[in-house]
Amino acid sequence: MSAPLLEVRDLHVWFDLPQGRVHALRGLDVTVGAGEGLGLVGESGCGKTTAILAMMGLLPPSATVAGQVLLNGENILAKGEASVRRHRWTDLAMVFQGAMNAFSPVATVGAQIAEPMRLHRVAEGKQATARVRELLELVGIHPDKASRYPHEFSGGMRQRAAIAMALACEPKVLLADEPTTALDVIVQAQVLDLLDRLRTELGLAVVLVTHDLPVVGRVCGRAAVMYAGRVAENADIGDLHLRPGHPYSRALFSGGAIPGAPPRLDEEWPGCAFAPRCEHARDRCHTEAPRLVPLGARQSSACHLAASIAGGTA
């Protein structure tokens, strides 16, 4: 595995709401290296979007964040808004959930792609224009379309243009939050192929958030399975399919329905978050929270019974 370019350590996020405090991220740990693809998978509401936004310091004021987001060893969240802003788009860029609306309707697509280049002094004037054309070509859009407005683009084109925009300042990490959910199957395949190509050709680290498991394998070698604001299991995609080390990943990747519902995040509990839904749960699972421990060189699981689950004996 290449050295971690981006490392998230013990990330916690609380949202303060009038009804109370929601503990949305509860000690998230993930790493991703240059040229790697990491899938972030899990049921809706498990904190995937929150994790992505926290990594860029983009959570709303109602959120409290604790923990570290290390980029080449430097904690980018340590010094507040002004310092994290320097890393936005130059180091970490993102394609959002609903990136179809990532463009302001009243400015041309080209101008909006070029804007961060000027802002971060990556390119200016003619150079920026040329780079916009290059980027559009890279994502399979005719360069002359740079002078068009977003409403003149189809949904899939807008999504690809949003990816082109994310590449404007040659970021090291691309965070993509469900970039294909709103697209039809053919366009979805195009976008995923594009992400995979960018990862291999540009050495981009890609963090791909999705609840659609087949999507993960097309871009990512590894995935972190998230449950209730934490990583339940972290492993190669193949292992997640063949020898998952956590009952939740096993249920998720076998495709069957999981009975019950995820826990409410405005409550705290002593044991494993999955225990109430887990057929293997013992007494210990209800009283002691399992930590994420290695299960092999490339696999780790937060389950007291990880070894027997992975070995198929439980």
Partner: peptide, 12 residues
Amino acid sequence: EDYILTARAKGL
């Protein structure tokens, strides 16, 4: 709107 989040992510 969504494009505002993108604009913030761009470092504006």
